[in-house]
């Protein structure tokens, strides 16, 4: 096999064959090594949050990846391919420009479908909202759909103060039923305060940046209303097709008692659907 090892002959056939073989082995080895190296490097450079979100986003069903502009009525059919990072999305910029110049208008009335949407808040696709406070901090809370689903505050595991949080990285964990589900952070920042029982928000953050780009990916209230409606329907579909029998006569879920209407064995799936965990 190796030159100078017993029985080796310097024939052309041997050299070509073994040349190809060793090339293949080296390529496989190098590629494997490269991926190990890259994963080590990304582990060190703290890209875990970013990569995790990329990977999870990739595995989300298409229905969960609907473009925000559908909810605003700007477009009819579009699936996000930018990890919900609207700041880097050219299509988003284009539509925004069109809207600014008044060439398109919101032709869909802001109907919340029964969910309350506050005009002071920006909404994250992971069903959190964010409100900018005058002191430069932001408070983050669960939106109307999420808070109807997660009614018991004690099941939430909140991060400690001074913890760094990253956009689309786990912020809060929900311990309920068999599996835990995490709630994604809407923006980068640092925890400055954790909300107590009865508080409308969960955590107070000091954002890393206060520039517009830091908030570009968040849904505006006008979009959020349609979105919440859409998400509720998606949740309903998901539970219905799974053979879950507990629905109302009209096939819909009772919005008010959402948490109790979801059967225990479907709980995990419902949380996964809502909080974008594939």
């Amino acid at each position: 096999m190796f030159p100078w090892v017993y029985g080796f002959t310097w024939s052309t056939g041997n050299l070509i064959f073994l040349g190809i073989f060793f090339t293949v082995v080296i390529v496989i080895g190098l590629t494997l090594g490269l991926s190990v190296l890259r994963s080590l490097r990304s582990a060190q450079s703290n890209e875990i949050a970013h990569i995790r979100w990329k990977s999870e986003f990739h595995d989300l069903p298409a229905a969960a990846r609907t473009c925000r502009h559908i909810f605003a009525g700007d477009t009819r059919e579009r699936t996000c391919a930018h990890d919900f990072d609207c700041g880097t999305c050219t299509a988003h910029r284009h539509i925004e420009e069109l809207r600014r110049s008044g060439r398109i208008v919101l032709h869909r009335p802001a109907g919340s479908g029964g969910f309350s949407v506050s005009s002071e808040r920006l909404y994250h696709r992971g069903h959190t909202w964010l409100r900018r406070e005058p002191d430069g901090t932001v408070v983050v809370g669960l939106d109307d759909l999420a808070s109807r689903l997660v009614t018991d505050r004690s099941t939430l595991g909140l991060p400690p103060v001074h913890a760094a949080v990253f956009r689309n990285a786990p912020l809060v964990t929900i311990r309920r039923a068999s599996a835990g589900t995490r709630i994604l952070a809407p923006i980068d920042g640092e925890i400055v305060e954790v909300g107590g029982e009865g508080c409308e928000w969960l955590v107070r953050l000091r954002p890393r940046s206060l520039g517009t780009d830091a908030f570009a990916h968040l849904l505006r209230p006008a979009e959020a209303a349609g979105w919440l409606q859409y998400e509720f329907e998606r949740l309903q579909r998901s539970l219905a097709s799974g053979g879950v029998g507990v629905t109302m006569a009209d096939g819909g879920l009772p919005m008010q008692e959402l948490a109790s209407a979801v059967p225990v064995d479907a709980w995990d799936r419902a949380l996964g659907e809502v909080f974008l965990e594939p």
Partner: peptide
């Protein structure tokens, strides 16, 4: 590695991610 339980482990997730990116090489070989 993409199994629900395993992917919770960050290093597995990272390795899977990087490996997947190079999958074209393996497909070629």
């Amino acid at each position: 590695l993409k199994n629900r339980k395993l992917r919770k482990n960050a290093s597995m997730l990272l390795f899977e991610f990087q490996l997947h990116k190079l999958m074209v090489v393996f497909a070629g070989i």
